[in-house]
Amino acid sequence: MKGIKTRWSPEEADLWTKEDYLTFVISPLIYFLLALGGIWCLLLRWYGWVVLGVSGLLIWLMIKIIDPKLRALSHDYEKKQKQFLEELEKIERWEN
């Protein structure tokens, strides 16, 4: 997809970028459309199916935008997690 980054280095994925901000807009919109589309479909209104269809497309789009970034940052973070957990336990035991 043009303008949307799909390959991330761990350092880049750690930053907040336009892919995140786009997700912040699309995600609540999906919830809003799911609520309305669900109601209208159950009342057998034709536009309910259109609204549900649009929410399906937006879910696909959102995953396309944010998933590569989430994968990259998750992968990198899990490598550091053990060390972070050790530090967490030190704080818990008043050793740090």
């Binding site: 995600s27 799911l34 309305l36 669900g38 159950l42 009342l43």
Partner: peptide, 16 residues
Amino acid sequence: WAGSALIVIRNSLWAV
């Protein structure tokens, strides 16, 4: 995200 999306859909079912 997915758990809450299910809640939104559930509420629509209940509403109708």
